[in-house]
Design a protein around this nucleic acid. Structure first.
Lengths: 344, 344
DNA sequence: CTGAAAGCGCTTACAG
DNA sequence: CTGAAAGCGCTTACAG
């Protein structure tokens, strides 16, 4: 293995100088730098992270902690959470880390089963900072991580005293609802996520804002919460609506798993989308893109959320004292095939 | 930060003894061990991985390299690869790592755009071993990693001179085809993955094996390759079949993205699944579980593949000289709603 | 701008 | 079975 000493010898400088070059110190003469960099290249030198970390007390690794409900193996049935939301967010993080040489340690973590034990990567001191994905964490958990001196960025929920990035839930729900209204729907239902999630209240705000704006044309509107964030949850929710005799001409949902559950119920009842009823979804995931008909949906740009989170964490590490930021990503409507324009 | 020295002082032993305890050496008297372990607990000592690694030349991290086609952001449309196959496999790896204190560094890697540069985690010497997921790698890439002295486990393809885990493709395809045949289908089509993938040949074998077994009852069977492993690929493949006037009563596919593409075509043609035609899929993913109707599919147990891969890598690290193993995971049929029993 | 020296927290022969 | 000592490859004041 080639070390700093080999490079120093090859370039006929001291190893301190090599170190300074590696760390981009401005203290090195351009000529010396060049000489050292040539030596590094020809010898194929790579800095030993363990040695560096031992000195600097940094790991140059970041932790990506993904909250999971439980450790049960996926059956892929529609009564299971898909995990797609976290997964897609996660894919954006490396994009935001590009150009740095941070490694990313990913860990799935089930708060319910952890009994107070922190994620292994954190406990073992393997990381310089932490991304928290999902809405299963508690404030106390975040505090504990911060007490260890680790910067934290939260994705997908809001917490006090941390940087966070989130979708603009109110706006996104407003956009999907408005689309239904603008295409002439008059009796619309909103299938919300379970009420236990903080976001459900914001979703309601977005839905109602659109309804208020179109108060003249809306004949009726309904709101219902799903029992869970799954296909089955969506299924049960519309079923309840239907069995109460409610007949909307358009439905908006809080996410794609729910939307596909709604589709399954309608499929069973032989109700055609979009001829008999329109459906708009929220989130944008592979589910909505692949199903038939393809779902018109609100893209909340999950990958982009991950990318922004990475930038926030980097900035926080660089300057631990900066004020906390809450970034919000703007949603877009993606028009596909599940909404039909109704005549007035 | 509490170090080995603090523990030694607290337990009134030397720091070498503490080190021996941490590393489960049998050389320590039970009584001494107890004393040290108590000290570790009360002081909350955690071993510094950088220091340990500097000595032992290990990182106690493993690398999970996921092959991606390109770095384009997902649109979630059905002409994009879903990435679900790799993702699901990946989720099983931590299960197999449980009980160890290996960290897992995940990196998405695009061989086509890398221009010979190894994944960062490997190049920077951050890992003691590597998982390779996906079938975009070349033999030379694997060799290069091995030349660095890193053990490798490959998931989802076969290569020479490495441990690997794979689904039993022939058997799985046989199972799905047989299911169609046993339920009385007589004119069946197989929608294969693109021919460039090595597995396509095995799939054909499985399909033909079943057809041969049911030679008496099969009236006709067709085989077609998709242009890509996407929904659109499946769509184009059935479309081609249909436009040639071919009318199967059952279709089997090579994976779920393809199956959903088939569904979209049939949906457009107003052909009902399973009343007019049956569909069996292969893989088991969230796509098949959430779509309507839910797909009857062959579960190849991707998470389990990940788990086994982890065990293989651990064994290889422990004993680099052991013979290479190729593990195969047995598939199961998952009966859902896309196949209808035909009368003879 | 560059070099010599100390030290980060471990592990591992080596003596005893 | 336990302790003293060397050294892993870096970084960082400190002199010069």
């Amino acid at each position: 293995m080639v070390t700093i000493v080999d490079v120093a010898r090859y370039a006929s400088v001291s190893k301190s100088t090599v170190s300074l070059v590696i760390n981009n110190s401005p203290l090195v003469k351009e000529e010396t730098r060049q000489k050292v960099e040539d030596a590094i290249k020809t010898l194929g030198y790579v800095c030993n992270n363990n040695a560096r970390g031992l000195r600097t007390k940094e790991t140059k690794c970041l932790g990506l902690i993904i909250a999971i409900e439980n450790n049960i193996v996926q059956t892929y049935d529609y009564n299971y959470e898909t995990g797609l939301y976290s997964y897609n967010i996660t894919n954006g993080i490396p994009v935001g880390l590009e150009g740095t040489d941070y490694g990313l340690i990913t860990e799935r973590y089930c708060p319910a089963e952890a009994k107070g034990v922190l994620p292994q990567a954190i406990h073992n001191g393997r990381v310089d900072g932490v991304f928290l994905v999902g809405n299963l964490f508690e404030q106390s958990f975040i505090s504990e991580i911060k007490m260890r001196g680790l910067p934290v960025v939260v994705l997908g929920t809001d917490f006090a005293q941390v940087d966070s990035v989130n979708a603009d839930v109110i706006q996104g729900t407003y956009v999907e609802t408005k689309h239904l209204l603008e295409t002439g729907h008059k009796r619309i239902a909103y299938i919300n996520c379970p009420q236990i999630y903080k976001s459900s209240a914001d979703r309601l705000k977005g839905f109602r804002k659109a309804c208020d704006e179109f108060a003249e044309s809306v004949e009726n509107h309904w709101e219902v919460f799903c029992p869970q964030n799954t296909g089955e949850g969506g299924y049960e929710a519309v079923k309840q609506l239907w069995e109460s005799g409610i007949r909307p001409d358009g439905i908006a949902t809080a996410n794609e798993p729910i939307a596909l559950g709604v589709m399954r119920y309608l499929y069973g009842e032989n109700i055609h989308i979009p001829d008999d009823i329109s459906l708009v979804s929220y989130e944008a995931s592979i589910l909505g893109g692949y199903t038939s008909p393809a779902l018109t949906t609100v893209n909340i740009h999950k990958e982009h959320m991950g990318e922004i989170a990475a930038q926030l964490l980097l900035k926080r590490i660089e300057n631990p004292e900066r004020p906390y930021e809450t970034k919000v990503v703007a949603p877009d409507l993606v028009v596909r095939d599940s909404v039909k324009k109704r005549l007035p």
